[in-house]
């Protein structure tokens, strides 16, 4: 589904990604771990289409099509979803109206009619139940005054509504307490299918106790220094990242 080949990227002349190659197939869960500043969030942003970076080399394709020239919204329309580490506050736009706009823009791009209000409501109800979200929450202004945990839960709610092909979860576990983490992870697991894929970016093993990855990659200094299965995450938890720096 997603193929990244030899990706190099920099910002303001600083090289951040130094040759990343990664393949994610439908039905798979990949975890990307690594210390602060390794380039994890940069990688996520570049896949989603953020324009601040200079991609100096490499390719990214989705289902065999090069997506490097596509805008963030075009990538979203093709099924890429990024759950933000720091979601933005938009006063005056409710969670519900935002997600309606988001869904209908995607449908419009695919030449579909707007989703009928009845179906939209039904879907909102189902997905908010799935993530144990209070209905009142949905009429609040998007992310405004939300706690860290509420923001993350709201991100996953949007993911549930948009049903992306490829979901990238950037530190979704940070700011979540144990119960919220379980609910969010549970939601993500229920959204998983053989047709979609998830990339989980995290510092810690604890999210991976709930969302079990098929592959774990360790990113360090802009490169994937080690890849393995879920056991690698446990090893990292035990040994820290330092031992990898010398590989």
């Amino acid at each position: 589904m997603l193929k990244i080949k030899n990706l190099h990227a920099s910002i303001n002349g600083n090289d951040i990604l130094k040759g990343i190659s990664l393949e994610v197939k439908a039905g798979e869960v990949h975890a990307i771990m690594g210390p602060n500043g390794a380039g994890k969030s940069t990688l996520a942003s570049i896949i989603a289409g953020k324009e601040d970076y200079d991609v100096t080399d490499g390719e990214i394709s989705l289902d065999g099509n090069d997506i490097m020239e596509l805008s963030p919204e075009e990538r979203a329309h093709k099924g890429v979803f990024l759950s933000f580490q720091y979601p933005v506050e938009i006063p005056g736009v409710s969670v519900t109206n935002f997600i309606k706009t988001s869904i209908n823009e995607s449908r419009k791009a695919q030449g579909l009619e707007e989703m009928p209000a009845k179906d939209m409501l039904k879907m909102i109800r189902e997905k908010s139940d799935l993530l144990e979200i209070d209905r009142k929450f949905l009429s609040r202004s998007l992310n405004e005054g939300f706690s860290g945990g509420e923001k993350k839960r709201n991100e996953i709610f949007q993911m549930a509504m948009l049903e992306p092909k490829l979901a990238i979860l950037d530190e979704t576990d940070s700011g979540l307490d144990i119960d919220a983490l379980r609910i969010v992870a549970n939601g993500i697991n229920k959204l998983k299918s053989k047709d979609n894929a998830v990339i989980v970016i995290t510092h810690y093993q604890r999210l991976l106790d709930h969302i079990v990855p098929d592959f774990v990659h360790v990113l360090h200094d802009g490169k994937i220094v080690k890849s393995g299965t879920k056991e690698l995450a446990l090893e990292l938890e035990e040994k820290g990242y330092d031992w990898l720096k010398n590989i």
């Binding site: 989603a48 324009e51 963030p72 979203a76 933000f84 938009i90």
Partner: peptide, 13 residues
Amino acid sequence: DALFYLQSRGIPK
């Protein structure tokens, strides 16, 4: 950053 957030949800620039 706010602009990118909205675009990443499929809302045109």
